[in-house]
Simulated assay, not measured.
Amino acid sequence: MLNWYKKSVVGLALVSAAMLSAEAHAKTLVKFASAFAAPELVEHQAIQAFKEYVELKSNGEMEVRLFAQSLGGDREMFEQVMQGSLEMSFPADGAIAGFYKPVQVLSVPYAIPTSPVAWEFFKTDFARQLTDDMREKTGVRTLALSESGFRSMSNNVRTIKTPADMQGLKMRTMESPVFMELMRSLGATPTPLPATEIVISLKQGIVDGQENPIPTIANSGIGEVQKFVSADDHVLGVQFLVVNDQFWQGLTDNERQILQEASHLLVNYSQANKLAAIDDSIAKLRDMGTEVYINTLAEKEMFRDAAQGPVKAYIESQVGEELVAAYLDAVEIAKARVYGD
């Protein structure tokens, strides 16, 4: 009887030791959700590169588990990162606005003129201070900012050349009051919907059109259900690569370094390849039978005159004139870095 007891104790000790050893060598799991499901999307490819880099550099000690369009829209995914049920996501700025109002400042229409200016803006003190403040207010840390492209209008009613062509259109927007105000300023009726519902809503005629970067329109199924695309470049889309800050603080220095390196890989891959793919995306849309109209500088000025004042005033009412002025100053700094004084 005593021998049986001794054997049992030894057996339990061995099992416990094995369990502790397994826990000590358990992988660090990073659940990463995004709205980018189609393999043709540059963002999807960039996120896949992120996963591969992290798992390679950690020698398999870190696992990145990807969820594409399965955990809700950007708004829902950002909220899950806030709550800690999800470690990472890659939401658009418009979807973050419901949780952190100051991010709306990035949506002043026609403020940032080109991609190189956007990339320099992301390096400014203003951008760093904005993301630091968001972390303090929400518990969500930004590892990197990424240009998702200048946004264009699409619809099934008519070619959009001037603001007059927007009159009466039912337009899907991000779940952002700023984008809703933008549509109202142009005479359209805004309908906020998550990205996961765009294509079906266009198919069913719930909305006439939507707005997104041209590569997204071409590669996400939107172009297949839209007759007209107009490249008016009204707002620069910004993606936030975010992580739950409590999770981040619990990582080792080496794990944090690997995730930070992979974050730079993700955004650089996404930005460079998206910009290089514009011509191919336009050609793809035209092959689908979608008309693509490139708005002239004079027409863009008409959109700017119609939309910038009302939208800027709305943003100022939400976040204050001082923040908006600081943002526009930072854009000027970025322009000077790219083009000189």
Rank of each mutant, 00 (worst) to 15 (best):
F247S: 09
Q129D: 15
P194W: 00
N268Q: 13
G72S: 11
T162W: 10
P194N: 06
A330E: 05
I214E: 15
V105R: 01
V235D: 04
D132H: 11
Q249A: 12
I333V: 12
V9M: 11
T290W: 00
D341V: 12
Q167Y: 09
A272H: 07
I96L: 07
L275I: 04
P213T: 09
L143V: 09
E52M: 07
V64C: 09
L285W: 02
L145Y: 01
A111K: 01
L186Q: 03
V319Q: 04
G98L: 07
Q129F: 10
H25S: 13
T189S: 06
K335E: 11
I214T: 15
A144V: 06
E299A: 03
V9W: 07
G84F: 09
A144N: 14
F126C: 10
E40V: 06
V267C: 11
A307S: 14
K51S: 13
A97G: 03
V117L: 02
G84H: 07
D208H: 11
P91T: 07
T162K: 13
L266C: 11
S263W: 12
A95L: 06
M302T: 04
Q318P: 04
T142L: 01
Q48N: 12
I333D: 13
M183H: 03
A111D: 11
T173L: 03
V229G: 10
E197Q: 14
Y100C: 04
V324T: 10
Q318G: 05
G84V: 09
A24M: 13
N59P: 00
Q257K: 14
G221W: 08
E63F: 05
S70A: 14
V10P: 03
A218F: 10
P39N: 05
V81A: 07
V81F: 05
Y53V: 02
Y314L: 03
N268S: 12
G84W: 06
I200H: 14
V108F: 00
S58Y: 11
Q226M: 15
N59T: 04
Q204C: 03
N155E: 05
T252E: 09
S21M: 15
S154L: 04
F150I: 01
F303Y: 13
Q246V: 08
A277R: 05
E43M: 11
H234Y: 13
A95G: 13
F50V: 09
L29Q: 12
A92P: 03
A68E: 15
T142M: 02
R141V: 00
K27R: 12
L130P: 01
V338M: 10
F126T: 03
G221H: 14
V199M: 00
P213Y: 01
V267I: 12
L29T: 14
E40N: 09
E120Y: 02
A13H: 04
D287C: 00
Q45S: 08
I294P: 03
M134L: 12
G187D: 02
F179G: 10
A33M: 08
S148D: 14
G149M: 02
K335D: 06
K274W: 05
F121K: 15
V81K: 04
M62I: 15
V229S: 11
D287L: 07
L143R: 09
D93N: 11
P163W: 08
Q69S: 13
Q260M: 14
F179I: 06
V30R: 00
D287R: 08
P177Q: 10
E79V: 08
V140W: 00
A38Q: 14
